[in-house]
Design a protein around this nucleic acid. Structure first.
Length: 120
DNA sequence: CGATTGACTGACC
DNA sequence: AGGTCAGCCAATC
């Protein structure tokens, strides 16, 4: 672990990067989810800002991070949305019209599976 | 140190 | 279903 004692991009940002790196392949996450897992349930914006800070890039799969609607970012810095889309598809995540199926691909660290009895 | 912004989100119309 | 308003948080100017 490198000790970036002199440069601290913000403890928050560091956690964000770590969380983003924890996103398994073939899965995506939202800024809000990242913020929540990082310990900041309301810092979705700050997350976006942190990622826009252009992190380690290859080290931080920010392309797996999408908006709450599963939409890709338009202002993607490292190439453009098309690149992000290509990366997502490379992970096995089909992208349709700049969007992904969060219902299927949103990263869920907790086994959700709230099976409800079908009724009416 | 104060004000503004920004890759966001949820609510309201 | 899509567009607008307001709220939240950290980083930057």
């Amino acid at each position: 672990m490198e000790k970036r004692d002199r440069i601290t991009p913000g403890e928050f940002a560091g956690k964000v990067y770590g969380t983003v790196r924890q996103i398994p392949k073939g899965r995506v996450s939202t800024y809000g989810q990242i913020a929540l897992l990082s310990g900041y349930p309301r810092a979705a914006r700050a997350v976006g800002n942190a990622l826009h800070n252009n992190p380690d890039g290859d080290l931080t799969p920010c392309y797996r991070v999408v908006s709450s609607s599963g939409r890709l970012s338009e202002a993607f810095v490292f190439g453009g949305v098309n690149v992000q889309k290509d990366k997502l598809e490379s992970d096995g995540i089909p992208v349709h019209n700049m969007r992904v199926d969060l219902k299927q691909y949103m990263w869920q660290p907790f086994t959700v599976l709230s099976k409800k009895s079908k009724r009416t």
